[in-house]
Simulated scan of single mutants.
Amino acid sequence: MARLKQLGIRVELHNPDQRISKIIRELARRRVPLVAIVGEQEAIHQTLNLRRLGGGEQQEINLAQLEQLAQVMPKAL
């Protein structure tokens, strides 16, 4: 999380006891444009799932790719 904050990315940590679908619905209601999801598999592979809310797009990226995105579109992150 610290590295993401250094990149200027807004970060929130959510309770793992909540269902991911409920968290995503809440974020969509708050009009959050992008959500990065890190589960067990992503933590092992040091990747994250980047999901564009409203459009349904989802892609798996690594931290270097996220850094590039942060430079190109800082307001969305």
Results as ranks from 00 to 15, higher is better:
Leu27Ser: 07
Pro16Gly: 06
Gln6Pro: 00
Ile44Arg: 14
Pro16Val: 12
Ala28Ser: 11
Gln65Thr: 10
Ala64Leu: 05
Met73Thr: 15
Gln71Ala: 13
Gln59Ile: 09
Leu13Arg: 14
Lys5His: 05
Gln71Cys: 04
Gln68Ser: 14
Arg51Ile: 05
Lys5Ser: 08
Ile44Thr: 09
Gly39Pro: 00
Ile20Met: 10
Leu69Pro: 00
His45Arg: 15
Ile44Glu: 03
Ser21His: 11
Ala70Leu: 11
Leu4Thr: 09
Pro16Ile: 13
Arg19Ala: 08
Leu34Asn: 08
Ser21Arg: 15
Ala64Gln: 12
Ala2Gly: 02
Ala36Trp: 01
Gly56Cys: 02
Val32Asp: 04
Gln68Leu: 14
Leu48Cys: 09
Leu13Cys: 03
Gln59Arg: 15
Val38Met: 09
Gly54Cys: 06
Ala28Ile: 06
His45Gly: 05
Ile61Thr: 12
Ala64Gly: 02
Arg51Thr: 04
Ala76Ser: 11
Met1Asp: 11
Leu53Asp: 00
Asn49Ala: 13
Leu50Ser: 02
Ser21Cys: 04
Arg30Cys: 04
Gln59Ser: 08
Val35Ala: 10
Gly54Trp: 03
Val72Cys: 05
Ile20Asn: 01
Asn62Leu: 11
Ala76Arg: 13
Asn15Ala: 11
Arg29Val: 08
Ala64Trp: 00
Ile37Thr: 12
Gln58Phe: 01
Ile61Asn: 10
Leu66His: 07
Ile9Thr: 11
Glu60Asp: 00
Ala64Ser: 08
Arg19Thr: 04
Leu63Ser: 08
Arg25Asp: 02
Ala43Asp: 01
Ile24Leu: 13
Asn62Gln: 12
Asn62Lys: 13
Leu48Thr: 09
Leu27Arg: 11
Lys75Asn: 12
Pro33Tyr: 05
Ala70Asp: 11
Gln41Thr: 14
Ile24His: 02
Leu66Glu: 05
Val72Trp: 06
Leu63Cys: 05
Leu53Gly: 02
Ala28Leu: 08
Glu42Leu: 07
Gln58Trp: 01
Met1Phe: 12
Lys5Cys: 04
Gly55Ala: 08
Val32Cys: 08
Asn49Ile: 13
Leu27Tyr: 06
Leu53His: 01
Leu69Phe: 11
Leu53Ser: 01
Ile20Lys: 10
Ile9Gly: 09
Leu53Ala: 02
Arg52Ala: 08
Gln65Arg: 14
Lys75Tyr: 09
Leu77Ala: 04
Met73Gln: 15
Met73Trp: 08
His14Glu: 06
Met1Trp: 11
Ile44Phe: 01
Ile23Ser: 01
Gln18Val: 06
Ile20Val: 13
Gln18Thr: 07
Lys5Gln: 13
Gly8Pro: 09
Ala36His: 03
Ala76Tyr: 06
Val32Asn: 04
Gly39Ala: 11
Leu7Val: 06
Leu34Tyr: 13
Ala76Ile: 05
Arg31Asp: 01
His14Met: 07
Ile24Ala: 03
Arg29Leu: 07
Gly56Gln: 02
Ile61Arg: 12
Glu40Cys: 13
Gln68Glu: 15
Leu77His: 06
Asp17Gly: 07
Arg51Trp: 03
Leu69Ala: 10
Asn49Tyr: 05
Ile44His: 03
Gln58Asp: 00
Met73Arg: 15
Val35Gln: 05
Gly8Tyr: 11
Leu7Arg: 14
Val38Cys: 06
